[in-house]
C-alpha cells in the first residue's frame, strides 16, 4: 500500500513538473520584430514592398 502511495506521489510530482513546464512555455516572452532600417530585395519584396511582386524577374 505504501509503495503504491509513493508511486502515485512520484507520478503526481512528475505530472506537475510537466504542467509547470508547458505553462511556462505558453507564457514565454514573445516579441514581434521591429523592422530593420536596411532595405533588401527578394524576400523583402514579399514582406515590405508589394509593388515589386509584379516584376517576374525580381528573383534573378
Amino acid at each position: 500500500m505504501k509503495k503504491i502511495k509513493t508511486t502515485l506521489v512520484v507520478l503526481g510530482l512528475g505530472l506537475l513538473a510537466v504542467l509547470i513546464f508547458s505553462f511556462s512555455q505558453n507564457f514565454a516572452p514573445q516579441q514581434k520584430n521591429a523592422e530593420r532600417e536596411g532595405l533588401v530585395t527578394g524576400v523583402s519584396a514579399w514582406a515590405l514592398d508589394f509593388n515589386q511582386v509584379f516584376d517576374s524577374s525580381q528573383n534573378r
Binding site: 519584396a45 514579399w46 511582386v53 516584376d55 517576374s56 525580381q58 528573383n59 534573378r60
Partner: peptide, 10 residues
Amino acid sequence: FNVKVQNLTR
C-alpha cells in the same frame, strides 16, 4: 515555381 519567383501574371 511561378508563385515562388513572384510571377503573378503566369
